[in-house]
Computed example of a mutant assay.
Amino acid sequence: MGLRERKKERTRDELASAACHLFTERGYEATTVEEIAAAVDVSPRTFFRYYPTKADVAIEILRTAAIDITLETFAARPRSEPLTASLRMAALAPIDSHEQRPDEVFTVIRMINANPTLRGRIVEQQLQGRDELAALIADRLGADPAGDLRPRLIADLLITTMSSVVDHWGNSNCQADLRLLANAGFDLLESGLGAAADVGAVPCS
Rank of each mutant, 00 (worst) to 15 (best):
L180Y: 12
A182N: 07
A138G: 02
S97Q: 02
N171I: 04
T46W: 06
N171W: 11
S86D: 03
G120C: 09
M162H: 11
P94F: 12
V123M: 05
R119E: 13
A143S: 02
A90F: 10
D198M: 15
V105Y: 13
S43K: 10
E124L: 06
G200K: 12
A155C: 09
G194W: 08
D177M: 09
V199K: 13
D103Y: 03
A176V: 11
V42M: 06
A176F: 14
L178N: 10
G192K: 08
I59K: 07
V202E: 08
A16F: 02
Y50A: 05
L71W: 02
A65K: 07
L83E: 00
S43M: 06
V42G: 05
A65R: 12
I61F: 05
V40P: 06
L188F: 11
H168M: 14
L71S: 01
A182Y: 06
V166K: 10
T107A: 15
E5G: 02
R79M: 04
I61P: 01
R110L: 04
H21Y: 06
S97H: 04
D156P: 00
A76Q: 10
R12T: 08
S97A: 08
N183P: 04
A197M: 08
I59H: 06
H21T: 14
F186V: 08
R110E: 08
F48E: 07
R179I: 12
Y50C: 04
W169E: 09
L83F: 00
G2V: 06
A143M: 00
L92T: 14
G2M: 06
G142L: 00
A16W: 04
H98F: 07
Q126V: 05
A201I: 13
F186H: 08
T53C: 09
R63N: 10
D167I: 13
T107N: 04
V166C: 12
I154S: 00
R26M: 03
R12P: 05
T160V: 04
R110G: 02
T107G: 07
S191L: 14
A134M: 01
A197L: 07
T161M: 05
L3A: 15
P145F: 01
L22V: 04
R63L: 09
E60F: 06
D131C: 11
V108D: 12
Q175P: 02
F48L: 13
L181P: 09
A65D: 13
